[in-house]
């Protein structure tokens, strides 16, 4: 073919009228916003809690007043509990969950690729994933503690194991969903198997991998808190467990609130990561 680099003319082109346009939301009848209903529900629950506590219906040992919990939370931030401030407990927990995430992505994505791209890989790894997937992480935690002791290694291992199935499964699903034409196009342009994997399969599966990672992060966070209840000297799970042993209920409730808040923040961060790394997938 003799297309020269000098192109004297191009074919005049009127942009198509049916070029993609931003979708407009049709005008709708004014309705009560759902967010407002949710906000009122939360405020109502808080009010019932406060009323119950101040009326002295329940002993503060079981249910301290919201104001007391708020004061405790401030105290946790400034002074801390069992030798660590709240920030140190949070960092210990976050470090473990992110460490576990790193390990499980490093193992899970290649494993998912192997399942999605090779029959042999699928034959080897499928039974392992299917064995691991339905197991509650706390069921194998004692075994991991026997193997790795009660240090950081055992906690990171348990978290990584609990995250692995959803990362592997979502990667494999993403790989299997790659359109055949996308692979054929690359092959027609001379791509090697490696190039097809790197330039077509991985980017095509990326949105699915990120969704799996987001789900895994939720699983990992709940596993972590449970694991810290059993064996740790720092971390949010450890904090509420030791508080419970001394019946310091306000710390327990404050700890639960922090755990929930961080779970929500992790979810938001993961969604932001999806939009940033795979904007084409969330565009529509």
């Amino acid at each position: 073919m003799t297309l020269t680099t000098h192109l004297p003319q191009s074919y005049g082109y009127v942009p198509d009228v049916n070029a993609a346009q931003a979708k407009q939301t049709p005008v709708r009848k004014r309705q009560v916003p759902i967010a407002l209903v949710s906000l009122l529900t939360a405020a109502g629950l808080l009010l019932i809690w406060a009323a119950t506590a101040t009326a002295g219906l329940v002993s503060p040992i079981f249910l301290p007043a919201p104001a007391v919990v708020a004061a405790t939370l401030w105290n946790l931030v400034t002074v801390g509990f069992v030798d660590s401030t709240l920030a140190e407990h949070v960092l210990a927990s976050l470090g473990r969950v992110l460490g576990g995430l790193g390990v499980s992505v490093l193992i899970g994505v290649p494993a998912g690729l192997a399942i999605g791209m090779s029959r042999i890989g699928r034959g080897i790894l499928d039974p392992i994933v299917e064995f691991l997937r339905p197991l509650p992480p706390l069921a194998y935690l004692p075994l991991i503690i026997i193997w790795f002791g009660i240090g950081e290694a055992s906690k990171v291992t348990v978290i990584a194991l609990s995250m692995l199935p959803s990362i592997i499964i979502s990667t494999a699903a993403g790989v299997r969903a790659v359109p055949k034409d996308h692979i054929n196009a690359a092959r027609a342009f001379g791509a090697t198997r490696r190039q097809v994997t790197l330039h077509v399969v991985l980017p095509s599966a990326l949105p699915s991998i990120l969704t799996g990672t987001r789900i895994a992060l939720g699983t990992g966070w709940s596993t972590l808190v449970a694991a810290e209840l059993v064996a740790a000297t720092r971390g949010l799970g450890f904090m509420i467990q030791s508080a419970a042993q001394f019946l310091v209920t306000d710390v327990v409730i404050a700890g639960i609130a922090v755990i929930a808040l961080i779970a929500i923040l992790l979810e938001i961060a993961a969604r932001a990561l999806e939009r940033w790394l795979a904007p084409w997938a969330s565009a529509h």
């Binding site: 996308h182 990326l206 084409w280």
Partner: peptide, 19 residues
Amino acid sequence: DGPGTERAVVFQDDALYPW
């Protein structure tokens, strides 16, 4: 022997890469 760059394909559903 398999696909090759001397034969380029244009697909019905474009097969462009959205990323």
